[in-house]
Design a protein around this nucleic acid. Structure first.
Lengths: 155, 155
DNA sequence: CCGATATTGTTATGATCATAACGATATCGA
DNA sequence: TCGATATCGTTATGATCATAACAATATCGG
């Protein structure tokens, strides 16, 4: 009982240069992220959290209160996007917002007690999830991957 | 003239375990993909194409006509998502669709002449873009990264 | 042959994601 | 001081992205 069929597959018709989509880093990175993200959702999905939402909560747990904008930068989200995530988490009372008294532009964001408790519950799960994602790699390969990805992200 | 401020940064307040978001592969992969994707959009954005759209066109160029579903698997997109991409590209006459005569469930998708011409124009740009993204890495590191990412994506 | 099962494509929902334009507030330099 | 510039948060738009439920069609096993 094959889950996927190759029925409609057709032979290559055009002058095939040596180009292959698999050789493009972007494509590989996208698929690897898909895998990692789905691994995480499998484990924390029962908490009704997505990967970006978890990252947001974890960052607040690490750093304490942050302005919405800085929080966004620290989780690699644009201002317009972190806003939506914050609104959803706020609606669930996992974080709270207040105005910065000295800079009226800023919205300070921090975890609620419930939010902090949730993060503490999720951290071991996430750590385990990372281990699962990295399972196909040996220890030294993991370290290497981290270093290479770090350099790519920095630019 | 600093482009980013750290004004609202606050000291860590909670019992900091040794947990760091940066140690989670998913987060690293997401940021690396963001970088790669933005590199691509910088270069092909003037053609009004996104990374997934380009991948779709490139895959059709490599393989010739494919069913919508198989095409989706080959570019790592869910049925509901590949559908939207196909519709947009079809609207722009970069690909065409027809019914499979032997299997009435299938929609066969193939590049138009314009679509194929566009891909041929874009392939060298994409190749160059990959080189840019990988610039921080040495040749042997690139090969290694490909192998590690490949193993992660496979699971 | 024919019913259980599988696959394909669609629809709907909700959550990212990036970009551009905008008003409000801060900051910097002349 | 005061105007140019920068930052912050918001709004709008359009494109992914994943999931679940569904009808139509194919395929498989008894």
């Amino acid at each position: 009982m094959p889950r996927t069929s190759t029925k409609a597959e057709a032979p290559v018709r055009r002058l095939a240069s040596s180009y292959r989509l698999e050789d493009q880093v972007g494509f590989l990175l996208r698929r690897a992220y898909q895998r990692a993200s789905s691994n995480l959702v499998e484990r924390i999905g029962s908490y009704d959290l997505t990967a970006p939402q978890y990252a947001t909560l974890a960052r607040l747990y690490e750093r304490g209160a942050l302005s919405q904008n800085l929080l966004g930068r620290l989780v690699a989200m644009e201002p317009a996007n972190i806003r939506d995530v914050v609104l959803r988490l706020k609606k669930r009372r996992l974080l709270a917002t207040r105005r910065d008294p000295t800079d009226k532009r800023l919205i300070l964001i921090d975890l609620t007690a419930a939010g902090a408790a949730l993060v503490e519950q999720l951290i071991p799960i996430e750590t385990e999830c990372t281990a699962t994602t990295l399972a196909p790699l040996k220890a030294d390969e993991k370290r290497l991957l981290y270093e290479l990805l770090g350099r790519l992200a920095e630019g």
